[in-house]
């Protein structure tokens, strides 16, 4: 198992597997970014903090 040439150091995942794990991270960051943006806009509308 550990002599699979496709596996990359240090995680033992293959390249495509690592890319997939990373894609979930990117997805999560994007979704949370958009959510935070919408939340800030909504809060700014009801209680403006920029004067």
């Amino acid at each position: 198992m550990s002599n699979d040439p496709n596996k990359v150091w240090p995680t033992g995942l293959t390249l495509s597997e690592a890319e997939e794990v990373h894609s979930y991270l990117i997805d999560g960051t994007r979704v949370f970014g958009v959510i935070a943006l919408i939340a800030h806009i909504l809060v700014a509308v009801s209680t403006p903090w920029l004067g």
Binding site: G28, I38, L42, V45, S46
Partner: peptide
């Protein structure tokens, strides 16, 4: 399940502010 959980979380995260704006709270 991961994506669905994120959507559920995101919806709940903005929901209270959306409802407050909807009800005309503060400057809204």
């Amino acid at each position: 399940i991961y994506k669905g959980t994120m959507l559920q979380f995101g919806g709940f995260a903005i929901m209270p502010f959306a409802l407050l704006v909807l009800s005309g709270y503060g400057k809204a």
